[in-house]
C-alpha cells in the first residue's frame, strides 16, 4: 500500500499548535490544597490518570489545531478497471462544419443562410458536438482526449474523465465560426501522438468526425501507418456527408473522378492500414446518432484507468477526536472533588 500522504490546506493554523502544550504544564486550576502530599499514599493509578487527563487535554487542543489547519489526504490516483476505451476525438473545425446537415435529397441551393441560424436545421458541427457530449456523458469510464484540426492540429485536452472539462471543450467548439482550411494528416498525427509513450491500458480509438476527406501525401501516409500500427489504434471515421457530395463507399456508376475524390481515397487508405477501422456515413441527424451509438456499443472492452481518489478531509475526524477528548475531560470534571465532605 502506498504511504498515506497528508497535507494541510491552512498550515498557518499550525502555528498555534505549541499552545497544545499548555495543559502539560502543571498550572493551578481545579486544585485543592492539601497540607502535605507525603501523607497521600502513592497510587500509580491516580498518577497515570493525572497524566492521562493532561495528555488528553493536550491531544484535544492538538486535534483542533490539526482540524483547523485542514488536515487532509490529497487526492491520489488509483488504478481502476472499467468498461470503455481511450478515445481521441478528432474534430474537424473547418468552416464547412458550420453548414447544416441536410436530409438526404435536399438541395443545398434551397438553403440560404449563413450559419444555419436562420433555418431550424442544426449545423453539422453543432449536431456532432451535441451527440458527442451525450456520448461522453453516458460513458463515464472512457478517457477522452480532444484534438481540433484545421490548417494545423490543435490538441485541446489529453485523456480525462472530467465531464466538466469534456463538456467545456465540446462547448467551445460551437463558439465562433470554423476555420478555413483542413489538414487531416497532421490532425491524425496529433491524435495518434496522444497514445505515443503511453502504457497500453485498454482499447485505443481515434474518433474522427469530419465532413470531408483529404488527399494525403505519401510521406504523411507512411508516418500515419507507422504511428497508428505501432500504437495499436483503432479508427472510427464518422463522415458527415456534405450535401451533394458522394459517399465514401464506391457505388455503381461512379465515374473515375468520383473514385479519386478525397474522401474515397482516404477511405481506401484507412482500409488498407490493417488496423481496426470502421467508417460511418452520416447523411442525416439520425444516421449520425446511429453511428455514435454504434461506437458506444462496440467499444466496451475493459479499460484500466487512473481515477483520482478525491481528497479526504480529516478535519471532521480531528474534531471528533477533540470532542471525545473534551467529553472525557468534562466527565472527569464532573467527578472532580473541589470541596471536602
Amino acid at each position: 500500500m502506498a504511504p498515506i500522504n497528508l497535507a494541510f490546506s491552512e498550515p498557518g493554523w499550525l502555528l498555534s499548535a505549541p499552545l497544545a502544550l499548555l495543559p502539560l504544564l502543571r498550572r493551578d486550576a481545579d486544585t485543592v490544597n492539601y497540607s502535605w502530599l507525603a501523607l497521600v499514599p502513592p497510587d500509580p493509578l491516580s498518577t497515570a490518570l493525572g497524566w492521562l487527563l493532561r495528555i488528553v487535554a493536550a491531544a484535544v487542543m492538538l486535534a483542533i489545531t490539526l482540524g483547523l489547519a485542514g488536515l487532509h489526504r490529497p487526492q491520489v490516483p488509483v488504478e481502476r478497471v472499467g468498461k470503455g476505451a481511450e478515445i481521441v476525438l478528432l474534430l474537424d473545425r473547418s468552416r464547412s462544419m458550420d453548414e447544416p446537415l441536410l436530409p438526404k435529397g435536399s438541395q443545398p441551393a434551397l438553403y440560404s443562410g449563413r450559419r444555419g441560424e436562420s433555418a431550424d436545421l442544426e449545423s453539422k458541427g453543432r449536431m456532432a458536438r451535441r451527440l458527442l457530449s451525450e456520448f461522453s456523458a453516458n460513458r463515464p469510464d472512457d478517457l477522452l482526449a480532444l484534438v481540433l484540426f484545421s490548417a494545423s492540429p490543435i490538441p485541446v485536452m489529453s485523456f480525462t474523465q472530467k465531464q466538466d472539462m469534456i463538456q467545456g471543450a465540446i462547448t467551445a467548439g460551437g463558439v465562433g465560426k470554423g476555420l478555413s482550411e483542413t489538414d487531416m494528416g497532421r490532425g491524425l498525427l496529433a491524435a495518434a501522438d496522444f497514445f505515443d509513450q503511453r502504457a497500453y491500458a485498454g482499447s485505443r480509438l481515434i474518433l474522427l468526425v469530419s465532413d470531408g476527406g483529404a488527399q494525403l501525401e505519401p510521406g504523411m501516409r507512411e508516418r500515419l501507418t507507422t504511428v497508428l500500427k505501432r500504437n495499436r489504434i483503432g479508427l472510427y471515421w464518422i463522415y458527415i456527408r456534405s450535401a451533394g457530395a458522394r459517399g465514401i463507399r464506391a457505388e455503381a456508376g461512379d465515374s473515375e473522378a468520383m473514385e479519386s475524390a478525397p474522401e474515397r481515397s482516404l477511405h481506401r487508405f484507412f482500409e488498407g492500414l490493417g488496423i481496426p477501422y470502421r467508417a460511418y456515413e452520416a447523411e442525416d441527424p439520425e444516421a449520425l446518432k446511429r453511428a455514435i451509438s454504434d461506437v458506444s456499443r462496440l467499444e466496451n472492452l475493459p479499460i484500466q484507468y487512473q481515477e483520482m481518489l478525491p481528497r479526504f478531509d480529516f478535519a471532521t475526524r480531528c474534531y471528533a477526536v477533540a470532542a471525545v477528548g473534551c467529553l472525557l475531560l468534562f466527565a472527569a470534571a464532573l467527578m472532580r472533588v473541589r470541596r471536602w465532605p
Binding site: 492540429p153 490538441p155 485541446v156 485536452m157 466538466d164 472539462m165 467545456g168 471543450a169 467551445a172 467548439g173
Partner: peptide, 27 residues
C-alpha cells in the same frame, strides 16, 4: 478560437493546466 469554454478552476485545475501547456505557436 475557443478551446475550452470556461469551467470551474479548482475541480478542473489539472485539466486546465494540461490544456494551457498544450497551447503553443504550432496551433
Amino acid at each position: 478560437l475557443l478551446l475550452v469554454a470556461p469551467i470551474e478552476v479548482c475541480d478542473n485545475y489539472h485539466e486546465l493546466l494540461d490544456t494551457l501547456d498544450r497551447i503553443d505557436g504550432r496551433m
